[in-house]
Amino acid sequence: MHPFSYVAPRTLDEAVEILDRRGERARPFAGATDILVQLRAGRFELDALVDLKAVPETTALSLDGGGLRIGAAVPCCEIYEDAAVRAAFPGLIDAASLIGGIQIQSRASLGGNLCNASPSADGVCPLIVHSAVAKLRGPEGERDASVESFCTGPGANVLRRGELLVEIELPPPPERFGAAYQRFIPRNEMDIAVAGVASAVALDEDGAAIVSARLALAAVGPTPILAERASAFLMGKPPTTETFAEAGKIAASEASPIADMRGTKEHRLQLIETLTRRTLAVALARARTSR
């Protein structure tokens, strides 16, 4: 492995300055659960790893007027151990508590999961269905990117030279809202998704119709994808088994999976249909019991 230096800046400005100066030869990290594996495998070389965990903005987790702000370096365990977050964002907890095992969850962050930009990232689809926004900071200042636009290809994202992800902001969910994430893996734990689906629905006052919906799909395209047609289809529909089955078919039509060692294209399309139905059912149950 190419030797690299370790830097732990204490401020965002300092972190941005280092990243800007070193360009592609430096990267920020939080839990290191992806980047150390990639460096050892020789996927790329770096001259410096920039540890963000001493930067206060990246390590804060706060419920904010019904919304949620997750610092880019907050590990999964801190998210699911927070009782208030667990109660308010169960769809996010679905993902935070199944990424890797306990050892990985002690370190891995949703911010890192997003920046790593794997198509199979478990943490990204739940963020997409929550309409989450990535708050970025770079040499030019701050800017926002929607989470669904953040990943641009396998391992690629919108970050520019010197720019880093500071936090992820989830807006307050609407009333009668529920979200859920499920994935398929051949084992019970500790594996990479063959396919995954996050669903979110909000119901009208009677619970008789869906007033807003978002579906996002993992491991069936070059990035995690927002299933726009399936999401639009659900609007105004009654939340029934038939509706969910049809949404599953539409979601599968929006997927463009490859065949690889984890699964065939056909298997993945079938999984998208099934997981769409199942996650919609869980999201609906959560919407019915939400405030």
Binding site: G31, A32, T33, L36, D51, C77, Q103, S106
Partner: peptide
């Protein structure tokens, strides 16, 4: 596996400097 500040981690994925 070791515990780092009370949380279990894979020590192969932690830098000594951390």
């Amino acid at each position: 596996t070791v515990a780092l500040d009370g949380r279990i981690v894979d020590s192969c994925l932690v830098l000594a400097a951390e």
